[in-house]
Amino acid sequence: MSEKKVIDARGTFCPGPLMELIAGIKQSEVGEELEVLSSDEGSAKDIPEWVNKVGHDLVDNFESDGVWHVVVRKAK
């Protein structure tokens, strides 16, 4: 298992957490996990929506101290 990549997208509006994840996944290998940190509550919904549509794996999705953590595994 490779080390989990962290995408710190807190406090950013453009391109935003989901777009950062999409770019990050393109640079990753199948099986790798990426953890997106977001200060936008909407990330807890829109990232899983995209992950499900494309067919990657949603590993975790939780809020801690005002930061949303969404962990995704590249599946293909």
Binding site: P15, G16, L18, M19, I22, E49, W50
Partner: peptide
């Protein structure tokens, strides 16, 4: 557009 709206800025 890549995400679920027409621009990254809501």
């Amino acid at each position: 557009y890549p995400i679920g709206r027409l621009h990254s800025l809501e």
